[in-house]
Amino acid sequence: MEKYAVYVPRLIKRKEKFAPGHRACIGCGEALAVRLAFKALDNNIVVANATGCMEIVASQIPYTTWHVPWIHTLFENTAAVASGIEAGYKAMKRKGVQVPDNVKVIAMAGDGGTSDIGLQALSGALERGHDFVYLCFDNEAYMNTGVQRSSATPYGAVTTTSPAGKNSIGQFSWKKNMPEIAAAHNIPYVATACHSYPFDLMDKVAKAASIPGPAYVHILSVCPTGWRSPTDTVVKLGRLAVETGIFPLYEVENGQYKMSIELPKLKPVKDYLKQQGRFRHLSDDIIAKIQERVEIEYQKLVEKAENGSKRAKRKSKTGAAKIST
């Protein structure tokens, strides 16, 4: 109840763009994440949405959940559609056509639409430097088509196309590091976020929209249907994903890494894994393997952030020295 008092006054003031009445599953973390992300933005936006859960649940003719201009075309091309929208506005404005000023293009897709089938279009749009924000709502599998594995599905997770069996532990590969791929394009802003940290998420989305050029925000979205977890643990699971170091929250601003939350000690990954049916079959050995990997990856990230802040300090010192001479 005391948390209620903390959150509600800060959230309720924001205008809803993703209205109630959509068809998402009970306890959908992605719908929550979308709602929060768009609360962080003003009305001067155009949304390009890839095929996926959020498109299907929000747009069935003759209804729409969206209070802002919205377009859906295909699964893999959303970043390219966003490129066209941005270029169209830019050209028309320059040529004196009456169009609204400073429209920000927001592209959104799931993890499959981003890290698998849409990766090429996204890479192209990031590389070309279009002024747009790309939001990846990552629920770690193709949930819309019935829980099939994607390259964002975590190691060991059971999906319908990565079942566990005599010869399989479930997902055989480690989760593709999509935020790093985005960051490798040297774009101005990359961040990770989760609906379980609503203000952090909203701050990052708002910041992404305020920066000219391409920005990428990767948002972990808990999916009780696909993760086989109780619907009332959605927020808790998001927090555990962060607290175990499995899904670290960080920003990469102009190449500088910055951890969003200081975690002096990571919680054991077991705390997170054991609450989800998709990991129920994992042996202690496999869990230990995941634990080891998570710690290594987390440490790498922390070092990047520390090196970044050292570099920043050095830079400011050099700057000061210059002024004194």
Binding site: V46, A48, I71, T73, L74, E76, N77, A79, A80, V81, A82, S83, G84, I85, E86, A87, G88, Y89, A91, M92, V97, V99, Q120, A121, S123, G124, E127, R128
Partner: peptide, 19 residues
């Protein structure tokens, strides 16, 4: 663009804002 798939997709985007 990086492919013809994206060429037509970007065209859809720009035509949808009236360009």
């Amino acid at each position: 663009v990086e492919s013809e798939h994206s060429a037509m997709s970007a065209c859809v985007g720009s035509a949808s804002v009236g360009a």
